[in-house]
C-alpha cells in the first residue's frame, strides 16, 4: 500500500524529468536536480532515523565525504562511475569504523554525539581544503544538465530500491524492531547493535550517492560546504515534514521543500526558513505522520505507520 505512494512520488519526479528535459527550462531542471539530491539524502537519513530509529545529526559528514571523494577523483582524471564507487566504498568503511563507537550512545546522546562529530568534520574539512573547487574549463565547456540529471535520478532510484528492499527484508524488519523497543528486540533475539550498525553503514553509503550527485552537478563550491550541518538539517526537516519511517515521506517532503522554497517570495529569504521551521515544529508536535500520512488519508487509506517518535503516553512518569 504505502509503496504505491512512494512510486507515485517517483513517478512525479519522472514526470518532472521528462518535462524538464523536453522543455529545457534551466530553472526547472535545476529545481528537479536539487529535489532529487535532497530526496536521496533524505531517503538515506530515513533508513537510519526512520527505520532504525536512530536520530543522527551528523549525516552531513557522509554527504560531504561522498562529494569530496567523488569530486577529487573525478576532477583528478578518474572515470566518474569509478570515482562514485570508490566514494561509496570509502564512506561505508568510514561509517563502519565511526559507527562502532558512536552507536554505543543511545537516543539523544547519539544525536548529540553525531552532531559533535559532524561539526568537527566540517571544521576539519574547511581547514584541510580551504580553496574553492571549480569545474575546469574543458569540463565546463561541455557541461550541461543531462549528466547530473540522470545521475541524480539513478541515485534516487537506487536509494528508494534500497529502502524498499529493507522494508521487506529480515534486516529491515530487525531495524524496525530495534526502533520500537531495544529491550524487547534484544529479548526476541535480535542483535541490536549490528542492526544499528548496518543501518548506519547503509545510510552512509546512500548519502554518498547524494553527495556524488552534488559534486557532479555543482559548478563551483567550497569543499566544506558539502559538510555543512545545513545538509543534515534539510534532510531531517524534509523527512519529518514528509513522514518519517515511510518510503514516500522523504520524496514528498523534498518536493514540497524545494518547490515550496522556490515559490515563496524571494525578496525575503528568511521567510522560507521561518516557514519550514514552523511547519517542522507543527509536524513534530501534531502530525507525527507527516505529509505522507495526510496524503494517505486524502486518498482514503487508513493512516500509515505511526512513527517511533510520538505516541500518546500515559502520565505515569518513570525517570
Amino acid at each position: 500500500m504505502r509503496e504505491r505512494a512512494a512510486w507515485m512520488g517517483l513517478l512525479l519526479l519522472g514526470a518532472m524529468v521528462a518535462v524538464g528535459l523536453s522543455v529545457g527550462n534551466q530553472h526547472f531542471l535545476t529545481l528537479t536536480i536539487q529535489t532529487m539530491i535532497l530526496a536521496t539524502l533524505a531517503t538515506s537519513w530515513n533508513i537510519l532515523g526512520g527505520f532504525a530509529g536512530q536520530i543522527s545529526l551528523g549525516h552531513s559528514a557522509f554527504f560531504g565525504l561522498g562529494a569530496l571523494i567523488t569530486r577529487e577523483l573525478w576532477l583528478g582524471g578518474q572515470a566518474f562511475p569509478l570515482a562514485v564507487m570508490t566514494a561509496v566504498i570509502v564512506t561505508a568503511l568510514a561509517a563502519f569504523v565511526v559507527g562502532i563507537p558512536m552507536l554505543r550512545f543511545r537516543d539523544i546522546y547519539f544525536a548529540i554525539g553525531t552532531l559533535a562529530l559532524g561539526v568537527a568534520v566540517y571544521i576539519t574539512a574547511g581547514n584541510l581544503w580551504p580553496g574553492i573547487s571549480s569545474l575546469p574549463a574543458e569540463v565546463l565547456r561541455s557541461y550541461d544538465f543531462t549528466g547530473p540529471y540522470f545521475f541524480a535520478l539513478g541515485a534516487l532510484v537506487a536509494a528508494v530500491c534500497v529502502s524498499v528492499w529493507l522494508e521487506r527484508s529480515r534486516l529491515g524488519l530487525g531495524m524496525m524492531t530495534v526502533r520500537e523497543d531495544e529491550e524487547a528486540a534484544k529479548a526476541t533475539g535480535v542483535d541490536v547493535f549490528s542492526h544499528k550498525l548496518a543501518a548506519f553503514v547503509i545510510s552512509a553509503a546512500v548519502a554518498t550517492l547524494a553527495g556524488s550527485a552534488f559534486a557532479y552537478f555543482s559548478v563551483s563550491y567550497y569543499p566544506n560546504f558539502a559538510f555543512s550541518v545545513i545538509w543534515t538539517f534539510e534532510a531531517v526537516l524534509v523527512v519529518f515534514i514528509g513522514g518519517i519511517g515511510t518510503l514516500a515521506g522523504p520524496l514528498l517532503g523534498s518536493i514540497f521543500f524545494i518547490l515550496g522554497r522556490d515559490l515563496m517570495p524571494t525578496d525575503v529569504d528568511e521567510f522560507q526558513v521561518v516557514f519550514f521551521g514552523l511547519l517542522f515544529i507543527v509536524v513534530v508536535l501534531l502530525f507525527p505522520g507527516g505529509l505522507s500520512q495526510a496524503a494517505g488519508r486524502l486518498l482514503g487509506r487508513a493512516g500509515e505507520r505511526s512513527t517511533a517518535t510520538d505516541r500518546p503516553t500515559a502520565a505515569r512518569g518513570r525517570s
Binding site: I55, A111, F233, V273, T309, D310
Partner: peptide, 13 residues
C-alpha cells in the same frame, strides 16, 4: 527526543 526536534526547528526560525 521531541524536545530536541522542536527546539531544532525553533533554532532555525
Amino acid at each position: 527526543k521531541n524536545s530536541l526536534l522542536v527546539s531544532f526547528g525553533l533554532a532555525l526560525v
